[in-house]
Amino acid sequence: MGPLVVYEIISENTNFLLAFLIGISFGFVLESNGFSSSRRLAGMFYGYDTTVLKVFFTAAITAMLGLLFMSLFGWLDLSMIYINPTFLWSAIGGGVIMGIGFILGGYCPGTSFCAASIGKLDALAFIGGLFIGVFIFTEGYPLWDDFYKAKFMGSPTLNEMIGVSRGVLTFLIILVALAMFWVGEWAEKKFARKDYTINQR
């Protein structure tokens, strides 16, 4: 039963090897979907290319459903899955700052590495910025230490918070995702651009 590391089924070195292989699959899927293109990623925010929305939400609901099935089959102990803790102010503040970085830089960290791997120089510049940004955070840490740790709420899940089961919430999110896919398809027609084709190189 998984997680393999938690149940000590695999050694630390095997874990790192699997991390590398999972990373290869991650990078391969991102690139095959054009997440190595800043214009495609930025297109999300102007509606001319909503691939990000489609891939992101399909991945999220696939994973949500997959975790439920894995648990049902006895392959994965969901109680051993790490739930990101919620520090409300830094989750919002960090998200807002990341949003600024996204629209100015055209990448997020994972996609920038993926894009750099096929030779995108703007992604390389973005990665340089990432290192500077992380360094500013770690060096100036005492300045935002308090904000970073404020409003700690433990590790709540959304289904606990609204009082429904994991399955019901997953079902509701699937409905929301379907509605968003429809909006995405509509937006790509409405905001289509002459200088951009969705399947360009």
Partner: peptide
Amino acid sequence: AVIGGIFFGFGAQLGRGCTSGSAL
């Protein structure tokens, strides 16, 4: 791109993860 990277790098630390680790 550099400016965006700086913001994203800083924000990802503050938010305890980026689009992959925190959001997805």
